[in-house]
């Protein structure tokens, strides 16, 4: 398994938000992660990233326990996180964005995705390489944020609402790229998303949370038949 989350309990000061959350993610598989606002999706992702420390439970990446490591150490091992907005450096050009992240992470070991690879995988970025990220549209910025996450040796990408503010055709295009690239490089992804149909279409796996607990964990086909949609 790429990522294993075992009986995770976490939250903020004096307030537990998620209890006993467990799931597994196979290499190259995409997990759609649903639940209403406050269900604990963001808290789960932030605990995997390391922005929050768990009260109880464990997080394992490629057979290594990572839940006590600081954020940069987890990034070095292949965790990537895309915030729902501001996932790029607005005052840098597309090329500078990629270049600075690539060079600061150049010491990592493992199979590498370089700036040139990202530019060839995401032709939209190639076309705008000299543009300042802050001047680009939401969709282009989201594409760049995804490109930044691909640099180095990503193992598991956590995507927080990547479709926010994007037009429907752009969402399809972005999700298509995510599916294609994740499969090709055996990268796993967790996709927190409000656009349920689009997210389900590219996922192998669905996790639904309610009130801080997992209420459904299974393949998309089974999720469609389940009665958990009443939460939305």
């Amino acid at each position: 398994m790429t990522l294993e989350v075992r009986k995770l309990t976490a939250g903020y000061r004096n307030k537990i938000v998620i209890t006993d959350v467990s799931f597994e993610l196979a290499p190259g598989s995409i997990m759609a992660f649903f639940g209403h606002n406050g269900a604990g999706k963001s808290t789960t992702l932030k605990t995997i990233l390391g922005a929050l420390s768990p009260v109880e439970g464990e997080v394992w990446l490629d057979g290594e326990r990572i839940d006590r490591l600081p954020i940069p150490e987890r990034i070095a091992r292949g965790i990537r996180y895309l915030p729902d907005s501001r996932g790029v450096f607005p005052d840098l050009t597309v090329e500078e964005n990629l270049d600075v992240v690539a060079r600061m992470n150049a010491a990592d070991s493992g199979a590498r995705i370089a700036v040139a690879d990202v530019l060839s995988m995401l032709p939209l970025l190639e076309a705008r390489r000299g543009s300042y990220a802050g001047t680009m549209s939401g969709g282009q910025q989201q594409m760049l944020a995804f490109g930044l996450a691909l640099l180095g040796s990503p193992r598991c990408i956590l995507l927080e609402e990547p479709s926010v503010g994007l037009q429907p055709d752009l969402v399809e295009m972005l999700f298509g790229e995510i599916r294609r690239i994740c499969a090709k490089h055996a990268i796993s992804a967790i996709l927190v998303e409000h656009k349920i149909a689009s997210a389900m279409a590219i996922s192998d796996h669905v996790l639904i949370m309610n009130n801080g607990a997992v209420v459904f964990d299974g393949p998309p086909a089974k999720a469609r038949e389940s009665n958990f949609w009443e939460f939305f």
Binding site: I75, F89, P90, E96
Partner: peptide, 23 residues
């Protein structure tokens, strides 16, 4: 320079700089 880019990156988005290991 790389340092210059890091500075501009950190200035424009400190959280992303943290999670992309720009230090």
């Amino acid at each position: 320079t790389l340092l210059g880019r890091r500075i501009r990156a950190v200035a424009s988005n400190p959280f992303l700089a943290e999670i992309t290991r720009l230090g």
